[in-house]
């Protein structure tokens, strides 16, 4: 059964259908489907204008859940979003960026979802909508594990909210993969940073693909406070800051390689964020 609701309210009502699944850009949905026949009801929300668009509220930047990567890249946004845009430009390929959506990337809950570290570094919250109303969760409380989220039956991710004061920080993103596009990341880092009198005031660092859920690196963040020059950043960051990671061995990289690569990438991206913050 294929359902194409004309409004968000209609979509929420259709979600009462047993086994129903939401379809937005489909860029994870179809490859995961493989040869299996789609037997469950599918609710196509990719055309609901109310779920798209990017707006500025008095307190937040609000990105509609069904906004595509191409739409996010094309939108003028504060520089805190530079990291997210950099990630968006390397998600899949242009054809994928034209279809794939931000909420889809979060709901798919891959440990290697490229949008998660940039959004975590921006203290993003997820807006969850159901027939009963809305609730908000910090992104870190929304993604619970590999392919696991806090979505309840009947709920959809209607928007991603980023506090405007955090969005004013400079940001940078880096990822390592076997190639640049169409590849599952080995490690990615996003850093958002503010300067006070030329020194690092606050750094927010998130790392993905090195644990079941991307995470903030609080000790590394603390180690950067007061740093005066981008050249000093590498010396302040060491392997101990990555102790909380739990990288896996797989076909893409060994756990040891991931740890080594993560530290190098962390130093580079943090330095890039500091240079961006000084400009």
């Amino acid at each position: 059964m294929f359902l194409q609701p004309k409004s968000v309210e209609a979509a929420l009502a259709m979600m009462a259908e047993p086994g129903a699944r939401l379809l937005a850009g489909g860029t994870d949905f179809f490859p995961a489907q493989g040869e299996q026949v789609i037997e469950h009801p599918v609710i196509d929300i990719s055309r609901l204008a109310d779920l798209r668009g990017i707006a500025t509220t008095p307190t937040h930047i609000r990105i509609g859940g069904a906004a595509t990567w191409s739409e996010i890249v094309a939108q003028p946004l504060p520089r805190g979003f530079d990291a997210l845009k950099a990630a968006a430009k390397e998600i899949g390929s242009i054809q994928i960026q034209n279809r794939g959506t931000i909420a889809g990337n979060l709901c798919n809950a891959s440990p290697a979802a490229d949008s998660v570290p940039p959004l975590m570094a921006l203290e993003a919250e997820v807006e969850l909508l159901s027939a009963a109303g809305t609730r908000r969760l910090p992104l870190g409380a929304f993604i619970l594990g590999n392919r696991k989220t806090a979505l309840l039956p009947g709920e959809m991710v209607s928007a991603i909210l980023v506090p405007r004061n955090v969005a004013e920080n400079a940001s940078a993103f880096g990822k390592l993969g076997a190639r640049r596009y169409l590849v599952i990341s080995i490690v990615m880092i996003a850093v958002a940073m503010s300067l006070e009198n030329g020194r690092v005031g606050q750094a927010r660092i998130a790392i993905g693909a090195c644990s079941a859920v991307a995470q903030r690196l609080a000790e590394a963040e603390a180690a950067l406070v007061g740093c005066r020059k981008a050249e000093e950043i590498a010396g302040r960051l060491h392997a101990g800051h990555l102790a909380a990671l739990a990288p896996i061995d797989d076909v893409r990289a060994t756990a040891g390689y991931r740890r080594d690569a993560a530290l190098i990438l962390l130093r580079r991206v943090a330095a890039a964020a500091m240079l961006a913050a000084g400009n």
Partner: peptide, 13 residues
């Protein structure tokens, strides 16, 4: 007007 991969989309979409 936008490039998409047509194996990744239903005709009804």
């Amino acid at each position: 007007g936008k490039a998409v991969k047509s194996c990744n989309m239903l005709a009804v979409q």
